[in-house]
Design a protein around this nucleic acid. Structure first.
Lengths: 141, 141
DNA sequence: ATTCAATTGTTTGTACTATAATAAACAAAG
DNA sequence: CTTTGTTTATTATAGTACAAACAATTGAAT
């Protein structure tokens, strides 16, 4: 035993496993999603629906995306016709984001799909494990 | 009750929580890592150390990265001087990847750091929850 | 042995997410 | 009013990933 750690079991490290779990979820998401919406775009869309019109930065904070990421996400949502952008008349720094009618419709359709995606992702687990996973993930997020 | 789903709790969806958990882990990783190694690069490095010399594709499969990703990762490991690349004399399609002496040294140093990173990521959890999380993640990965 | 189809390995183009650095607008003292 | 600090948004750059294209190998049927 000369080394401080003989073996490092990559397959049991939480970081590695989180990456794998994310990969699997992303793949399931992609197979169900509408119009190529990504998990991140979907999250942003849901937040805009909940918040109503709000600034880009505020949206990013509440959707857990940094300023550069939320900008790209909003750009793509705008390109797809789901989000509308306008300058804030009261604050020239701000860009106000809101949903277009197509965006509203998309949110309504995607909520069902989102539930399916969650169910399929959790399918290998028992009901107790599903609740446990969500509870534990909330503790480390 | 006119809509099929009144509210969709984004903050309880496993996909969203997995993204947050990953963000937190990545941030912890970055604050401890040596020479800017990313979690993905570290995973690849560990796999090369375990496997010894092997083809790029095989490495990618065993590190859970698709062909394009593993190529980029290997390129960066090579740039940093941790990995060595050579053509396979027996199969002209293949590129053989192995660790440089610097790569070996890095793996040895990073195994300790990796353990610290895992510990810090799991810190908000009880010991039972930590075991549970790893067990459940392995089931959905 | 030879040919041709299927498989395997790698690379390139494109898209998405993220960090760091910068610039512009605002707010709150002094 | 001006200085100082904060908030907002953008740009440059890096990393990860999917899809398509291309190259080399294998194997099965002549």
């Amino acid at each position: 035993m000369t080394e401080s750690i003989e073996s490092y079991a990559l397959d049991e490290q939480v970081g590695y496993l989180l990456r794998l779990a994310n990969q699997r979820h992303a793949s399931i998401f992609q197979s169900h999603t509408l119009e190529g919406l990504t998990p991140t775009q979907f999250a942003a869309l849901i937040r805009i629906a909940d918040l109503g019109k709000c600034s880009q930065n505020r949206l990013g904070r509440l959707a857990a995306m940094d300023v550069a990421t939320i900008k790209g996400v909003v750009d793509r949502l705008r390109q797809k016709g789901f989000a509308v952008v306008e300058p804030d008349p009261d604050d020239k720094r701000r860009t106000l984001i809101s949903l277009s009618p197509e965006g509203e419709a998309m949110v309504a359709r995607m909520k069902d799909v989102g539930q399916q995606i969650t169910n399929e992702t959790l399918k290998p687990l028992t009901a107790a494990e599903q609740r446990n996973l969500v509870r534990i993930l909330r503790k480390i997020s």
